[in-house]
């Protein structure tokens, strides 16, 4: 199954929810764009979690283009797509690998977002590409977090560096990178404990982990991925902002996009913090990862309303 299919499969439920809502908006052929319409449209867009400002921007755009006219569903959806694509504009953003030596990837995020599982998914992707992977079990806090990552490393057949519970995570990260260098691994992925972005000492700990990695490889970590739960609402903006202050985040992994949540908060994050979305998670298995493509994200949201070319 190609990446595009997987992306679409993951978003299938998302689509069908929006699909019925959108169809409701256009009960008959055309519809007069008046305040009533704009308000219904506002309701629909809000459900994606894209946030107040993004919604109002799109509503304003539709009002500007069509107010007082009778238009078809296609016209309006095209405007949504254009505007959303504009808001979400980013370059394709896969992992940027180190010129030489191991590429170090640090993974961070709030509690339960999907960090450890995303690491399993990334590992599988790298292994499938023929790269050698070392994992660092940097969550030495949460009950059985090390065991969880160990199970994944066994299943995927990748190396793992772990220390007893309570060891400083910076030590684990250092040792993992050291192992990656020694064993000529291609990629080293460091897991970290979940933390809320308001916990100052824990955010400082994250900075320390980054520093300890840099003692071995000054240009590392080459990627710092912030894992965001797709069901997250407007708090995602605070998460992106504060994690970016603590460490040099390079992008977002949007996990759990296989539910009915639309992950729209990334639109607001893109606007306010500027972080690109790199990958999406669409399930609990290692293969449930897809590269994020803004155009496809936007298309997939509106694909079923009949304006999408049928061919794939």
């Amino acid at each position: 199954m190609g990446i595009f299919d997987k992306f679409k499969r993951g978003l299938a439920k998302t689509k069908s929810v929006l699909k019925t809502d959108v169809r409701d908006l256009f009960k008959s052929e055309g519809r007069l764009i008046d305040d009533g319409f704009l308000d219904e449209m506002r309701a629909l867009l809000f459900k994606t979690d894209m946030g107040y400002d993004s919604v109002e921007e799109i509503v304003a755009e539709v009002a500007k283009n069509f107010r007082g006219r009778v238009v078809t569903l296609e016209d309006v959806v095209a405007t949504w797509k254009d505007k959303l694509s504009e808001l979400m504009a980013q370059d394709a953003s896969p992992i940027s690998f180190a010129q030489n030596g191991p590429t170090v990837i640090m993974v961070a995020g709030v509690n339960g977002a999907g960090k450890t599982t995303s690491i399993a998914k990334l590992s599988k992707m790298f292994v499938d590409e023929g790269r050698k992977v070392v994992l660092g079990a940097g969550d030495t806090f949460r009950a059985a977090a090390v065991e969880q990552l160990t199970i994944w490393s066994d299943r995927l057949g990748v190396d793992i560096v772990k220390e007893p519970q309570g060891t400083h995570p910076a030590t684990v990260a250092y040792k993992a990178v050291e192992r990656a260098v020694e064993t000529s691994a291609d990629v080293c992925i460091v897991d970290t404990a979940g933390r809320l972005q308001t916990q100052k000492n824990l955010m400082a700990e994250l900075t320390k982990i980054q520093q300890s990695i840099r003692k071995l490889i000054p240009a590392a970590p080459h990627e710092v991925l912030l894992v965001l739960d797709a069901t997250t609402g407007q708090n995602g903006i605070s998460q992106a902002g504060k994690f970016t202050e603590a460490v040099d985040c390079t992008g977002i992994v949007l996990a759990k996009l296989d539910g009915t949540a639309k992950g729209g908060v990334v639109v607001a994050i893109r606007q306010q913090v500027g972080l690109p979305v790199k990958y999406i998670g669409v399930g609990e298995q290692p293969e449930d990862l897809a590269l994020f493509k803004p155009a496809e994200f936007v298309d997939a949201l509106f694909a079923e309303v009949g304006v999408e070319p049928a061919a794939e």
Partner: peptide, 12 residues
């Protein structure tokens, strides 16, 4: 329920 949940909380 996660206290950070957005609009989808109603559906789940």
């Amino acid at each position: 329920v996660d206290g950070m949940t957005g609009q989808d909380a109603v559906n789940s």
